[in-house]
Design a protein around this nucleic acid. Structure first.
Lengths: 238, 238
DNA sequence: ATCGGGCAATCTGTATACAATCCAGAGCCG
DNA sequence: CGGCTCTGGATTGTATACAGATTGCCCGAT
């Protein structure tokens, strides 16, 4: 969406396109966004150290914006800060993941209940639109587009619930678990969008209980898949 | 608990008791803790501007630790940051408060369910201890001790649920709403601790559904009181 | 050969300095 | 007399500099 191009183009790094759009001045936010994107895209692996000087050089800025970006991302749970040892990409344990998934499932359920109660036509139109795109992408195997579409669907669902606090928490938990889910995301694409369709249908019907149940189960199911895969894969740990 | 004394004693501010305990070095954390305390204690009123230079001078440190403290507190939701306009003490609207209360109620319910399922004897002993102290304080009208006791009870309950993610979210929401609840906190003291007792009893009995219901209602009831008071008080708004 | 001590490089924590921006109020013009 | 512009002060955003701490390595002693 936003260029991100200057990032790889700096190298020499003398002047930044301060006038690029003119809308997003503060370096701290640019760095935060880019770094978050890089982590979510897997360009920084979980557990990897994030050295301030190094990042500052990479982004062509001083250490201050980088520090603040790291604190923001730490608050979001994407990076872990250890006193006097710096920042690392968060590497949630299986237990952490389970906790986040359960909380997120509960919150998605609550939100879906609200969405069903409100049935805002505008947001439902948006949801339908995203749903059809997502279903098509899943059917076509367009793996690159799926994460973004998934995010858009859940954001729209949050909008339908119209509780901003709730929406923020859900997004935060979704981001924090996304690195963990990444390997499986592509696998369950079709089921994911079938579940999305069922949730939306229940919301449109105004069935609060069913909406809540389906949304909760939707998250839990993805979580179960992860945990099952995990328990097989981490047998060799520690 | 911690001294905080040097804070008012610096003035000239040349050397800080770096060796005070030796346990809590980073200035950023000290400032964060002190500032949070000050906000929660009402020494900074909602909506009030928090100028970095001013705070830096007050704490006898440079602006950097102050900035980072402000970002941390912003992530916690206690201060609001406006781009290029600085930080202000968060002043949640009635609608914001309602949203936070509802989410918190749901999460407390989920947590209480877990606590009832686990029935960890050690944590239950702690809860009983805090409960008796709180009940006594409420009966004696020891208003000063009540906020801390309330926090300790809910923290212990979170520990009983043993979901750290959940506990962190609950604490965050509790803090964010505490400034809003402050006026009423003292009023409902006795009922609050009766409700605490009922929740604990249900947890000890292992009644998951009842624990969840009571915990959820406990939060909702306090919220209702606030909203009722608010709707009468804010009639003149915008 | 292994263990312990010390040293150097690396990195974070903090302070200070400078640039850019915003807001208020005074003064000017219509 | 009202509205507009322009300027000065105040405040945030960013960069650079320095100090303290931690890590890992190398070397020497046993």
């Amino acid at each position: 969406m936003r260029p991100t191009s200057w990032l790889t183009a700096i190298d020499g790094a003398a002047e930044r396109p301060r006038a690029a759009p003119g809308i997003e001045s503060p370096l701290r936010e640019i760095v935060t966004a880019e770094l978050r994107q890089a982590i979510l895209a897997g360009r920084y692996k979980p557990g990897q150290r994030l050295v301030e000087d190094r990042l500052a050089a990479d982004f062509g800025v001083s250490r201050n914006p980088v520090r603040e970006a790291l604190r923001s991302l730490a608050a979001e749970g994407l990076v872990a800060l250890t006193a006097r040892r710096g920042a690392t990409v968060a590497a949630p344990s299986a237990a952490d993941a389970r906790e986040m998934i359960e909380v997120r499932a509960t919150l998605e359920g609550l939100n879906a209940r609200h969405a069903a109660r409100r049935r805002d036509p505008q947001v439902i139109a948006l949801l339908s639109e995203v749903l059809s795109q997502g279903t098509a992408a899943a059917a076509a195997g367009a793996l690159d587009a799926l994460p973004d579409l998934n995010a858009r669907f859940h954001d729209a669902l949050a909008a339908a619930g119209s509780n901003r606090v709730l929406g923020d928490l859900m997004r935060s938990l979704r981001l924090r678990t996304s690195t963990v889910f990444a390997p499986l995301g592509a696998w369950r694409a079709r089921e994911t969008w079938e579940e999305h369709a069922a949730i939306l249908k229940a919301v449109i019907a105004g069935d609060e209980a069913l909406s809540a149940l389906l949304a909760e189960r939707h998250v839990m199911r993805a979580g179960d898949d992860f945990l099952r895969a995990e328990s097989g894969a981490t047998a060799a740990d520690s």
